[in-house]
């Protein structure tokens, strides 16, 4: 399970690919990739604060999109950054997808964290979640 930033996909924005053995792993990696877009070293974000994060969607793509949008919202509205997600659960019920996870991190601090660029939104452009050999993969473009 990992994520990597892509060079030749989005010119004005930041694109990444995240994967994981399970869909939960992949979601966590995508969440970390989003945080890493804003903070250079995720290790500098201590895990002193815990926040429960939930999302839902009509399919796994919408679910991941909504989860990432929620992280962007929390960054602006609560100034919280995360460096770890734990207890992630994803399930389908009556044709709808739900996720819950606990984000571990701390309040954003320009002096302490080396900040990169601000993520303004998660784009739908070329957004994808797919099942691949050995797990799940997602491709995401962040609006900078």
């Amino acid at each position: 399970m990992s994520y990597k930033f892509l060079e030749d996909i989005a010119i004005a924005d930041v694109a990444f690919e995240a994967d994981g053995k399970t869909i939960e792993n992949m979601f966590e990696q995508a969440g970390l990739a989003l945080e890493n877009t804003m903070v250079k070293e995720l290790e500098t974000v201590k895990t002193t604060d815990k926040r429960k994060i939930t999302a839902e969607g009509k399919d796994t793509e919408t679910l991941l999109h909504n989860f990432l949008e929620e992280l962007v919202y929390i960054k602006d509205a609560e100034l919280l950054l995360f460096s770890k997600f734990s207890g992630t659960k994803i399930a389908e019920k009556n044709g709808k997808w739900f996720m819950e996870t606990t984000g571990l991190g701390e309040p954003l601090n320009q002096k302490k964290h080396e900040l990169l660029v601000d993520v303004k939104a998660v784009s739908w452009h070329k957004f994808s979640v797919s099942k691949v050999r050995g797990g799940f993969k997602s491709t995401v473009i962040l609006d900078i």
């Binding site: 930033f5 892509l6 060079e7 030749d8 996909i9 989005a10 010119i11 004005a12 924005d13 930041v14 694109a15 660029v117 900078i144």
Partner: peptide
């Protein structure tokens, strides 16, 4: 207008 991605420019 950009000619290359941010990730590439950073490299």
């Amino acid at each position: 207008g950009r000619t290359m991605s941010r990730t590439k420019a950073k490299g």
